[in-house]
């Protein structure tokens, strides 16, 4: 009998986990649908959108720029030493460029912004939930989805491609600095190789990916913050969940987007 009871408990735990997952997925889907609907329906709050563009976009530039620079620099070193095994050192500019533009610029930029912005949004909305500020918004005839969620979604979706583009340029510069100062590449040849190798599709696919990542970052921050539990612990958990879920979704959606863009 104890074995049977233990087996029942085991099955119950699995069932509870599956039900919890289904409930969260449903809740997230409803939240996403409502949020997107409010992005397209007036009233809009331009001042709030501008404020979020500044917070999410402008103030993330140093983090994204530094990440991109060192990633480009490290990539150049790695490609050079790896390429040397089959006498292909000359591919450094091309591989750095395509690696940054297609993959590392948007993904690493996205992950860095997820850590910075998703956490900040979740903490802000979570605190607003705990201190009844979100309820207060409702009583003041203001829809929290329109005032809090939609501006953040719009700002992150618009700002992330710009951040990724700037990150691409700085990342390629990082490769250029290492390539010319450390690996002996000719500066003009390095730039020519980079410029001639990249196609419009390489750049645009990276920017589309960045826009999707921006949407995910803001969505997870808003969702976790909006549904934050009570007290400091609840807000802390919302912040952690926002960063973890945004990061996982960025990596998962990155694979799906790569399949869509490049599989053929």
């Amino acid at each position: 009998m104890p074995i049977l009871l233990a087996f029942q408990s085991f099955l119950a735990a699995i069932g509870a986990a599956v039900l919890g997952l289904c409930a969260t997925t449903g809740s997230l889907a409803i939240f996403t649908g409502a949020s997107v609907m409010h992005v397209f329906r007036p009233p809009w709050y331009p001042a709030e959108i501008g404020r979020q563009l500044l917070r999410i976009g402008y103030f993330s530039l140093p983090v994204v720029g530094l990440t991109a620079f060192f990633t480009g620099a490290a990539l150049a070193l790695q490609i050079y030493t790896g390429g040397a095994r089959f006498n292909a050192e000359a591919v450094v500019p091309s591989i750095v460029a395509i690696g940054m533009v297609r993959e590392l610029g948007p993904v690493l930029g996205g992950l860095m912004v997820a850590g910075r912005v998703s956490a900040s949004i979740a903490a802000e909305l979570g605190t607003m939930r705990v201190t009844e500020q979100i309820d207060a918004l409702t009583t003041l005839s203001t829809n929290p989805y329109k005032y809090l969620v939609a501006p953040r979604l719009m700002a992150a979706t618009l700002a992330m491609p710009v951040l990724a583009f700037v990150g691409d340029i700085i990342g390629i510069m990082g490769g250029y600095v290492v390539g010319t100062a450390r690996l002996g590449f000719n500066p003009g040849a390095y730039i020519n190789n980079t410029w001639n190798f990249l196609t419009f599709e390489d750049i645009s696919s990276g920017l589309v990916k960045a826009a999707v990542f921006g949407f995910i970052i803001a969505l997870m921050g808003c969702y976790q913050g909006y549904h934050s539990g009570r007290g400091a612990q609840g807000v802390g958990r919302a912040t952690t969940n926002a960063v973890v879920s945004a990061s996982i979704l960025i990596l998962a959606s990155n694979y799906i987007l790569n399949e869509m863009f490049f599989a053929s």
Binding site: E132, Q133, D135, A136, T139, S141
Partner: peptide, 15 residues
């Protein structure tokens, strides 16, 4: 909602 006004326990002021 435009007919309602509410004072929340903690104030709920937008910080």
């Amino acid at each position: 909602l435009s007919r309602f006004g509410m004072l929340f326990q903690g104030g709920a002021l937008f910080d």
